[in-house]
């Protein structure tokens, strides 16, 4: 399938599984998953925050494991299953969303997609869900509005 484009960039057709659907993407093989989601697949719930894996805003699940989609190239996805904040069939994620709403956990909300994906994995890992374990799990995620305590409480509730 791989072919050389008219330039030196390697364009390729990829098939990846996103939110339980197989989709075709034609792009440079080094394109980060983030931009595949946002530009090619119109799944804009996954956020661009820094592009270097330092803020957590772009976090998605790959086979259940949270990764930074901003520095994960599409060629590395292979047959693995990608889940984003838009996915409605993940019951843990849905529970988190409902607890975030009841706790009013957010202000601008830009950091929440990544945080909720991380929290889904954290809850599913059956870790102890006290304040400090949740805070530690989220330590790679930045929130500038100061909604941290509400977010922690919502995740605690979602997991209990």
């Amino acid at each position: 399938m791989t072919h050389l484009s008219t330039t030196l960039d390697y364009m390729a057709d990829f098939q990846i599984r996103v939110n339980n659907k197989v989709v075709d993407v034609d792009c440079d093989k080094n394109t980060p998953l983030l931009w595949v989601l946002r530009n090619h697949l119109n799944l804009t719930g996954t956020r661009f925050g820094c592009g270097t894996g330092l803020c957590g805003a772009c976090t998605v699940l790959i086979d259940g494991t949270p990764i930074h989609s901003c520095d994960t190239p599409i060629w590395a996805i292979g047959n693995k299953s990608v889940q984003t904040v838009e996915y409605e069939e993940n019951s843990t994620l849905q529970r988190i969303k409902s607890c975030m709403a009841s706790e009013q956990a957010g202000q601008c909300g830009f950091c929440l997609s990544g945080i909720m994906m991380r929290a889904t994995a954290h809850i599913d890992s059956l870790a102890t869900l006290d304040r400090s374990s949740i805070a530690d799990a989220l330590d790679g995620h930045l929130c500038r509005c100061g909604a941290h305590n509400r977010i922690i409480e919502a995740i605690r509730q979602a997991g209990s």
């Binding site: 804009t44 719930g45 709403a101 957010g106 909300g109």
Partner: peptide, 18 residues
């Protein structure tokens, strides 16, 4: 409850980046 939070949690188009 805030009227803007629901869209932000669902990840549907909301922000200017989208």
């Amino acid at each position: 409850n805030r009227i803007d939070l629901d869209a932000k949690l669902k990840g549907i188009t909301h922000f200017i980046q989208d």
